[in-house]
Simulated assay, not measured.
Amino acid sequence: MKTFKVISLQVVDNDELHDFDIEDGLIINKEDGNSTWLVETYLSQKYIEFFQKVQQQKDDLEIQVVISHKANDPAAFLTSIRKIKKINDRMSILFEGKLKKQRNEYAELLLDDLVQKGYTGDELVKEFREKMVSKPRIAAASKPSV
């Protein structure tokens, strides 16, 4: 097994991207032959109703996590919530799932997002370069099917 620190967590719910301020997190590649990953995040209980509602749903839950360094591209996973545990005024959420995509499509998602926002020409190139450095969060589901 390999473990890494989780820097940020986003949940894709009905094509909406929800950002969550996490206090700490850990992701584990189980290396079990099934490509299974475990993601545990530690955050405020103010989000408990959202996660309890999502846990009740039968569909897989898409999450995006930035691993190890803030500058890394987000990795998308299809998961289910295995456990929500209250710890004082915080909670731990354990997700289990698989990588959604094997190759990183961040640049393509960013470019598509900027074009949809109306950027063109030199302005598009400038914004793209800046955003590739700052790595703003972009929903993996935002890319239209081709």
Score class of each variant (00 low, 15 high):
M1S: 15
K2H: 13
K2E: 15
T3P: 04
T3S: 15
V6E: 09
S8K: 13
V12M: 05
V12T: 05
D13N: 11
N14S: 12
N14W: 04
D15F: 03
H18V: 08
F20M: 07
D21K: 11
D21C: 03
D21V: 09
I27S: 15
I27F: 06
I28S: 15
N29D: 15
K30H: 12
G33M: 06
N34A: 13
S35M: 11
S35P: 00
T36K: 11
T36G: 03
T36S: 13
L38Q: 09
L38C: 01
Y42M: 13
Y42K: 15
Q45D: 09
Y47P: 12
I48P: 02
F50Q: 08
Q52Y: 11
K53R: 14
K53L: 13
V54W: 08
V54M: 13
D60V: 10
L61S: 01
L61N: 06
Q64T: 05
V65F: 11
V66G: 02
V66E: 06
I67M: 13
P74T: 08
A75C: 04
A76W: 00
A76V: 07
A76C: 09
F77N: 06
F77T: 05
L78G: 02
T79M: 10
T79H: 12
S80L: 12
S80E: 14
I81Y: 06
I81W: 05
K83F: 09
I84A: 08
K85P: 02
I87V: 13
I93Y: 04
L94Y: 00
E96Q: 15
E96N: 07
G97H: 07
K98D: 05
L99V: 13
K101C: 00
N104W: 14
A107C: 10
L109N: 15
L110R: 00
L111Y: 13
D112C: 03
D112Y: 14
D113S: 12
L114N: 03
V115L: 11
V115A: 05
K117I: 00
G118C: 06
G118S: 02
Y119N: 01
G121F: 04
V125L: 11
E127R: 00
F128D: 00
R129W: 00
R129T: 03
R129C: 01
K131I: 00
M132T: 07
M132D: 08
V133W: 02
S134V: 03
K135Q: 07
P136W: 02
P136A: 09
P136K: 03
R137I: 12
R137N: 14
I138M: 08
I138K: 05
A139C: 11
A139Y: 03
A140C: 06
A141W: 01
S142Y: 08
K143I: 10
K143A: 10
K143T: 04
K143S: 05
S145T: 03
